[in-house]
Nucleic acid binder design. Structure first.
Lengths: 151, 151
DNA sequence: TAAATAAAAGATAAAAAACTCTTTTATTTA
DNA sequence: TAAATAAAAGAGTTTTTTATCTTTTATTTA
């Protein structure tokens, strides 16, 4: 019913995605592409599972990739300016931004559930956070080694 | 990867728990105990699954129960004054209040991850919301029929 | 053009969450 | 005290999420 440790706000899939994209962004700023093995190592995620996630982000155009030697994942300068919200939305869908906190399907602006207004505020703040956090936001800190993305 | 509808902030288990407790609180205010069947019906949850959830809440002392005819679940006047946070904590554990948004286990006040401060604000607001929402908060609205807890 | 590299894709497996069913125990009331 | 009621408890099942393994395709460079 409630266990050892999990349960943040986001799924593990989404957590891996966020960490991976920050890592890729850092390497891109340094002018390098980076392979899955290295990413997985540095953000502490299972490599094949991460591969799936990055494939999806790549297909959605949120990150770029190239095959072959010296290939790997990267983002261009436009990508560095994208908000983290794009990543979360690609993985979790819209419902985290819009769904009812109590899971009521009827709940909406015009027919709100008891907690609707309170949840709206919380969600608003999550959206602000995810919109304000650009993918390249932590590059300096990461490059300088003041920040890490591994467990 | 991302599906038809789910993914709120809380698990379904937790959503059912919140809705059920609001419903029980309403009935308790009206002086009635209420059986699982009726609760499940009114909050739109699978009855046997809900039974498990209520058993846990009951064991934790967050709601009360009595067996036999005219038995059922209820809360006393003290229970009506409890915050919703108690319910959520019983189901989800503490991590939703304290865990790292990016799933980093090292992340803490003294060794924060890149998003630590932003997440702290969001979590603070969730806590405020859950602490300010007392279990009996919506009784009038529910009794008057202005609010519902079903899908 | 061959060898090496790296992502893409597909198929499976394990773990957790959500859900169901059956039996037992306690309580009430007729 | 017997019958009815309702929660408690235990033992499954199903679905979803998380994770793994294998094969294929594309690209580069030597």
């Amino acid at each position: 019913m409630h266990l050892d440790e999990p349960m943040g706000i986001f799924s593990k899939t989404c957590e891996y995605a966020m960490r991976a994209v920050f890592y890729i962004a850092q390497k891109s700023e340094e002018g390098q592409k980076v392979g899955i093995r290295e990413i997985a190592l540095h953000i502490n995620s299972p490599e094949p599972f991460l591969a799936k996630i990055l494939q999806k982000l790549s297909k959605d155009g949120l990150i770029l990739s190239s095959k072959g030697p010296n290939g790997g994942f990267y983002v261009d300068s436009g990508g560095l300016q994208r908000p983290l919200a794009d990543i979360v939305r690609a993985i979790e869908g819209d419902s985290i931004f819009t769904g009812c906190g109590m899971g009521l399907s009827y709940c909406s602006e015009s027919n709100p559930c008891p907690l609707h207004e309170d949840f709206k505020k919380v969600r608003g703040q999550i959206v602000v956070m995810l919109q304000n956090t650009l993918i390249g936001k932590f590059n300096e800190g990461l490059i300088a080694g003041q920040l890490t993305l591994n467990k």
